[in-house]
C-alpha cells in the first residue's frame, strides 16, 4: 500500500508530501505519524507540502487534525511551503487552520520549530 515516508531528524520528524493526497493516504499518514511520535518521542513535526498543487477540504481538515493530535502528544507541528493557489483554496473553503504554525520553506520551518521547542 502507498505510504508517505516519515523521516527522523534528531528530535523532529520530517514529512514531505510529494504525491497527490487522497483520503486513504491522509488517514494512513495520521495513524503512522501518531505511532512514530510515540515511538521516537519526537518534539516537533515538520510537514512540507510545497509539491502539493491541490488540497481538498478533507486533506485540509486532516492537516488540522494531525497538528492537534501531535500537540496533545507534546510535539509542535509546522506546515511549510504552501503554494499560493492552495492557500487561496483553503481560505475560500473556510479552512483557516487556526492552531497550525506555518513557515515559507523547510529551513525557516526548522528554525521556527527549534525556537518553539526551546521555549517549551
Amino acid at each position: 500500500m502507498e505510504r508517505i515516508p516519515i523521516l527522523r531528524m534528531g528530535e523532529f520528524l520530517l514529512v514531505t508530501i510529494q504525491v497527490d493526497m487522497h483520503d486513504q493516504l491522509a488517514l494512513t499518514l495520521q495513524e503512522d505519524l501518531g505511532e512514530r511520535i510515540s515511538a521516537t518521542s519526537a518534539r516537533g513535526v515538520l510537514i512540507d507540502i510545497s509539491a502539493l498543487d491541490i488540497v481538498d477540504s478533507f486533506t485540509g481538515r486532516m492537516i488540522g487534525t494531525i497538528s492537534a493530535q501531535s500537540r496533545i502528544m507534546d510535539a509542535h507541528t509546522v506546515l511549510v511551503g504552501m503554494q499560493p493557489e492552495v492557500a487561496i483554496t483553503l481560505v475560500e473553503l473556510g479552512l483557516t487552520l487556526p492552531g497550525v504554525s506555518t513557515a515559507l520553506d523547510v529551513e525557516r520551518g526548522m528554525k521556527l520549530l527549534s525556537a518553539r521547542v526551546a521555549n517549551a
Binding site: M82, P84, V86, A87, L90, V91, T102, L104, R108, G109
Partner: peptide, 12 residues
C-alpha cells in the same frame, strides 16, 4: 481577513 489568512497559511 481572507488575504491575511492566506498569507499566514503560506508561512508569512
Amino acid at each position: 481577513l481572507k488575504t491575511v489568512t492566506a498569507i499566514r497559511l503560506m508561512g508569512a
